[in-house]
Design a protein around this nucleic acid. Sequence first.
DNA 1: CGTGGGAAACAACCATCGGTTGTGCGGCTC
DNA 2: GAGCCGCACAACCGATGGTTGTTTCCCACG
Lengths: 329, 329
Amino acid sequence: MDTEALRSFVRAAELGQLQQAAGELGVTQQAVSKRIAALERELEVRLFTRTARGVELTLDGQAFLPHARGVVAGVERAVTAVRPGFRALRVDVLGLRSAQAVVLHDYWRSHPEADLDVVTLRVNDPRVAAAAVAAGDVDASFRTVTDRAALPPGVRMIPAFDSPLELLVGPGHPLAAARTLTPPRLRKHRIWVPGIAPRSEWAEFYDQLTTDFDLRIDAAGPHFGDEVLLDTLADSPDVATLVGARDRYVWPVGHDLRRIPVVHPTWAYPLSLLLPETNPHPGLRGLLTHLTSLPALPGEVWRPSWATSPGLGGPRAVTTAPEGAERVR
Amino acid sequence: MDTEALRSFVRAAELGQLQQAAGELGVTQQAVSKRIAALERELEVRLFTRTARGVELTLDGQAFLPHARGVVAGVERAVTAVRPGFRALRVDVLGLRSAQAVVLHDYWRSHPEADLDVVTLRVNDPRVAAAAVAAGDVDASFRTVTDRAALPPGVRMIPAFDSPLELLVGPGHPLAAARTLTPPRLRKHRIWVPGIAPRSEWAEFYDQLTTDFDLRIDAAGPHFGDEVLLDTLADSPDVATLVGARDRYVWPVGHDLRRIPVVHPTWAYPLSLLLPETNPHPGLRGLLTHLTSLPALPGEVWRPSWATSPGLGGPRAVTTAPEGAERVR
DNA sequence: CGTGGGAAACAACCATCGGTTGTGCGGCTC
DNA sequence: GAGCCGCACAACCGATGGTTGTTTCCCACG
């Protein structure tokens, strides 16, 4: 079935004339007549009764019309969904349960009219994500490239928001009862953060954390999925892990895991957003505004060196970074 | 855009292979490849990345897929909406505000899963409606053919339900304050029922009513629409009309019209249903069951002669007419 | 490191389709 | 009854979408 035929049918039904419909569609009356005839042949029903001054819907035609309209509208949406420059804002996140996705969800809930596509590129290397941004495959990506030289031309990186870390432990862990924790209390406890790719920004983050606070962070070993991690934590009396405060984790009620904020200082993982320097998606503006409106972390905050080095935008509070938003057209 | 191409795209995306998709669709791999290529050319984006062991959706492909699914499903629905034997049950009513439509609406509300199309044939002659039933254009029609010989072959008529009449008057009418009315009290009052086609079953109904109860029913004159009728009633101190108790009429609050039931006896307009004798629509069964489950009119009931003559099914209560339903396959 | 296999793309060919112009036909309208 | 309006039919033609045969590419495996 040809969607052009459906379009012709809808227009002809609305106008009550093949002639006029043909004119609007930029083809001859005969072409429209053939399209309708083909449709009728395919459906094996008559859609129009032909009268002296046009056409009139049969009952079958009346029943068919709303469906045809729906299909035509669907095709329209389908095309605009991928049309470069018109499609929905497409933002890459690390995972659908990450704090990034939560923030995006919040944004969408407060701006339901925003056309937003949340995708996961399924690549680890942030440089690959940056390349995807450069190529226009995605309009923005919540990734951090710690080495500015690795940023492809045409892509810039701006601070997005700080994700505070929490300790996640099972009920048998010695720290399980704490309401909050300060870094010194975590010394000598084993912190297990599996699946950290070597030389990634996460590896660097935990390296600095380990050094600055004299911790035992075990970032080695493959990650077999959140389920395995959570199962292990639930049963273990001495293993803990770190998660973002806004990351979504779900576990069976029996696990009885505890999330304990770390304070004095709060450990903040600074999330960045990669976006094209030129011709950013118009929908980005709203997202950036939303990001700048997020409240800053309260109290004393620790960040990794790259977030405080002037080479990458300097140590500026997220709440006072309007330039990033303003520079977007 | 060709919906076959969309179908191929969806299937290929699900299977991750053009080859298999081609097999399922009954065409060669090359055909599917060309369809996808055409789609990509039309959309000006790549939908798949080609790998050694199949295809994988690009981000654009991922964004496009749900829309493509929607369109394919829409086409499916559109086709079944008119496919003879599979389409929704299509019932003709005199008007969307008539008691018939109200009953159908009740039926649909109690059976939301029933696929029901309520249509108005926009013809006055019940024989034309009967012909539409015979031709299969509609599956049933709430019409009454008083002369059995006028029923086309293959169409039968069964009693549907009785519609009790009420007097509709303006606030200035002498009967406006009555809670109920008996026929003798209506004598000498002018009852205006415009738009009755001569020799129609409605004309016959009012003829018999006039004769049996010695009324002044003025059934002449064209009907300029309910608005005109209601406006006239609202202002007139001596004009009344008859409406079905379940007919939906709406008027401005200022009109202050009154609906007054007629009792001892209740005047019942017997509604009938025309339906094909053979191969009725499967959905009809549920509707007929619903009709037989409607409560009979309470008290003393008057009906026109054709509803009580044995030639057309005899005087039987609607509530005791299961044969009609049972005989439907 | 070459090789075989699997999957998609490319090429050539052909029937069909969808578009065009030209013409016929049936109902209104005057 | 003549003219007009609007749709259908006919003939024609380039584009399209299908086929078979062949090539290319990537990966796995010996």
